[in-house]
Design a protein around this nucleic acid. Structure first.
Lengths: 201, 201
DNA sequence: TCATAAACTGAACACCTATTCATATTTACT
DNA sequence: AGTAAATATGAATAGGTGTTCAGTTTATGA
């Protein structure tokens, strides 16, 4: 479970180490994991090819390390916003808003995490199952307090993740024609979640 | 835009051609596009490596051909079910049900289509933008008839695609713990879409 | 039947890529 | 200053992959 990465010990080495990671994130995003060469990464980082293996046992281990970094960053960022709020409505609103802002500012997150499905399917499954698992706990809490209706919370968690992810996808890849004003998007999503899609007969 | 594929002319050649496509679908699903070799494909199809290039100019062209096949199959299957129904509620219900059934029976569809994001981003964007575009037309129609509330239909289309896709993802990858009874899942989704998530104050 | 086109073969080609390693330089610490 | 550890180099290695092609077999149709 633990990482096989060898941490740098000197200041310059830390720069090298971070430079490799940053270059890799940039290239994995732009060209994908398979489209990116270790030489590409070291070239962009400004170091020799062999330097890579001072810190990372393999290209795959670097990818896994980046994936863990990004997933922690996403969770941390969203949790910080969600935990500020008390009601489930406000939690959902802040959660989706935080996610959209994140993928708008750092669209590489979206791409790199989703690509895990084609690099190591178990990584992908673990990511979404553990995300869903935490989500379900929050929903169950809100259900026990009578804030949300009595629905299968595991299914609801995938519904809400699906909404957030596809809205995030639209923003990250600039899909569609409408102007992606974040407040407007969040308003529409919350409106639908609160009042449903259909007119009352 | 048109395919560069050379169609087979004899009966045996048609078998060879189909065999290559079927083997490729199987392997792209199990090992991903980059994890699959042209030799893997021809070996599984029971033909020599060179035979591949009798019909497909390149590995990428085969992938694109499969992608177009699968996207047509998905659209056709869903459209057939949706068009049977008159009300927007029934259309949504049948649409999501058809999608879930499809990815449950043929989970490779899901994987191969999503992988396009890492093979050719424009293919992926085209796929979802055109899917959303048709969706928006249907929603606008329902809106004009007063069936659904007055919401930004482009955003709503991504919300509904997100729900369907993530529920489909859960089923296709067997995510989570709950038993994936399709009727139960569809009931929960439609309940949420109709009545919203929250208890009425 | 026989000539022509279509289908097929698999070794060879040209290129690419992850990783290693012998060597050299820099840093940390006494 | 001096030494051992850490850091860095980049050419070499070892293996792999998409694609081609000269030669062979099979099917078609007159």
């Amino acid at each position: 479970m633990e990482t096989l990465i060898k941490e740098p010990r000197t200041r310059n080495a830390k720069n090298t180490f971070n430079s490799i990671i940053e270059s890799a994130i940039d290239l994995f995003y732009r060209r994908g994991y398979h489209g990116t060469t270790v030489k590409d990464i070291t070239k962009e980082a400004g170091v020799a090819a062999g330097t890579f293996y001072l810190y990372f046992p393999s290209k795959l281990d670097l990818y896994k390390h980046i994936l863990i970094m990004l997933s922690h960053e996403i969770r941390r960022t969203i949790a910080a916003k969600v935990n500020e709020k008390k009601s489930r409505y406000d939690k959902e609103r802040e959660g989706i808003k935080a996610f959209i802002l994140l993928v708008k500012e750092q669209p590489y997150m979206y791409n790199i995490i989703w690509e895990s499905l084609y690099i190591d399917r178990e990584l992908f499954k673990d990511y979404y199952e553990s995300f869903a698992s935490r989500y379900v706990k929050g929903l169950n809490q809100s259900a026990s307090e009578g804030e949300i209706r009595d629905l299968d919370t595991e299914i609801v968690s995938y519904i809400l993740m699906g909404i957030t992810n596809f809205i995030g996808l639209k923003v990250a890849l600039d899909l569609g024609s409408s102007n992606d004003d974040i407040n407007h998007i969040v308003d529409v999503v919350m409106d639908l979640i609160k009042h449903g899609l259909f007119t009352k007969k």
